[in-house]
Nucleic acid binder design. Sequence first.
DNA 1: TTGTATGCGTTATCAC
DNA 2: GTGATAACGCATACAA
Lengths: 355, 355
Amino acid sequence: MTTVYDVARVAGVSTATVSRVVRGSSVVHPETRQRVLAVIEMLGFVPDAAAQGLSRRRKDIIGFVALERGLSEIDIEQDSVLFIDQIVHAAEAVLRDTACSLLLTFGSGGRQFEQRVRSLSGKVDGLLIAEEVLPAEDLRNLAGRIPVVVIAGRRDESGLDVVVSDNVTGMATLAGHLIGHHRYRTLSFVTGPKDAPDARERQSVFHDTVLASPQCVIDQVIHGDFSEASGTAAARVLLDRRALPQAVVCANDQMAIGVLREFQRAGIRIPADVALTGFDDVNPSRLVDPPLTTVSQPLREMGMRAARRLLARIEEPALPPRIEALPTQVVIRASCGCGPAPASSSRSRGPANPP
Amino acid sequence: MTTVYDVARVAGVSTATVSRVVRGSSVVHPETRQRVLAVIEMLGFVPDAAAQGLSRRRKDIIGFVALERGLSEIDIEQDSVLFIDQIVHAAEAVLRDTACSLLLTFGSGGRQFEQRVRSLSGKVDGLLIAEEVLPAEDLRNLAGRIPVVVIAGRRDESGLDVVVSDNVTGMATLAGHLIGHHRYRTLSFVTGPKDAPDARERQSVFHDTVLASPQCVIDQVIHGDFSEASGTAAARVLLDRRALPQAVVCANDQMAIGVLREFQRAGIRIPADVALTGFDDVNPSRLVDPPLTTVSQPLREMGMRAARRLLARIEEPALPPRIEALPTQVVIRASCGCGPAPASSSRSRGPANPP
DNA sequence: TTGTATGCGTTATCAC
DNA sequence: GTGATAACGCATACAA
């Protein structure tokens, strides 16, 4: 392995000068620079990041930790993966213009995972944390040691930098559309996993919105786990009843797709017999027939904002913590009962960056 | 920031002992260990990975570099992202049982990207490289300095560890099914981007297989770029002709979906009027109507094998290079003309691990 | 079993 | 502009 010493020796300069050239820093004589550069090229020298990190107290690495909800070796929930990956790609894209790289870690929670995150924190300059992968205490604790930005989840993490998408307005708008525009009166809801804060938030907002209309009733709440299979199961529950609700609102797209397919298998027409909606706007939602009315989250925007925020905090640790709420977008397609006509869309206007 | 020195002082031991405890190594008196552990917990000590890396000559980080084909800020090709992400997740899953973490870097090629990869190589113990993101020379060069495993691409990278999926057998089997089972005689092909080796390989195998049947003819080859939009465009080209081919074979699923939708928009029935196939078996392929006949690549298996291989090579750099070819699987669904009956599937048996 | 002392490869401070 | 040299935080060979 070639080091600065080798380069220095061959180029006939000191290691200090080599370092200066490598870091592109300060004033080195152009001629010297050329000579050193040539030697570096010749020797194929690449500075050791560990040594750099040690010396500069900067690793130029930021960590990304998220959980792999429901991803098992056997049954790969591709879309739930996709969901987080969008954020990852966006964050990476931001880092691409910097010296930083993205260190990725997934996990399924639990003691062992917390251990891993802890040791991870020694490898990075800062952490991007998706959802509540950690108990609040550990999180705060972590944030005390290194810069942390939390992505998604609910919005009550105080004292921390948080980037959330405005689930509240999104679901409220969607429910409003169903109730106000389509005049549906009996609605069912398919929930997500209990430990998913955003799932709970969607349910609660749906609940409040529907009950705010005196003529409306939440016909049934069926528990799902975000998987397509659980959507299928939910559909069966619904099909076993005497009468169907007028609309089925799902906490995410995958479950909605499960419901859709099972309904169609049973000869139920969507949206003629039942209206159906999802949440997330994953790619397949556009492809199924009828295309799914859903709520799109600004995944890329979230990833980018979070990354930028983290970078800023690493640069300036004293920054006051801030919550950024990004607006979601209701995507009206056919499954809610709107014709296949030019899809309109309404933008939920979440209050961005409250103090 | 608390260091081993702090811990040592408070615990009343030497830094060596602290280090021993941290590394779980050798024989430390249980009592001492407890004391040190307690202090570590109390002080919230986390070892600095840079210092560890410098001292141990081991960063416990492996890099993953891939290109983000066609991913622009405006038009997000979600599936092409998904494709690589499956591999990433699989690799990460393997690393999860080790001390290593995954450092992710995407890029679109070019000089700047090569620079980035180079500097990246200073941060990691080894590199997972997807597709030919680098000129062969640079690649070899890189492999000379640190362990490298190449994923996918074509299989002629000699002297390097490579993990490929057996595109050849997959496409040959698929084409064989179309020709042998369905007796299609006129077939069109929609290609992928010219600079994608696997796309070219698929085309070439398709070509050879079809021409091996004297009665068969490749009716037309249309150039696509793996995007759904290019599939749509290809469909228009086909629709402009007097007669349609009996089957349209696409180099990937996304283009096939584009073709499918455009055909249906034009009133063409699939597979009654034209048979259609894709390649990759991305999630939506199962969801469209009719479901797409395609070839599934062992993405997760590839990611896992590659990661394991890299780990092994890092441990033992003298290992002889090896090519692992993983079998693909033809997934027969309805779009090729097979009934919606119980989908059969045939497994392509690629020669695994040739010398 | 534990402590001492040195090296790991770079950067940065300070002289020159 | 350039060159010595002292950190940086941890691991380990060796001594005790």
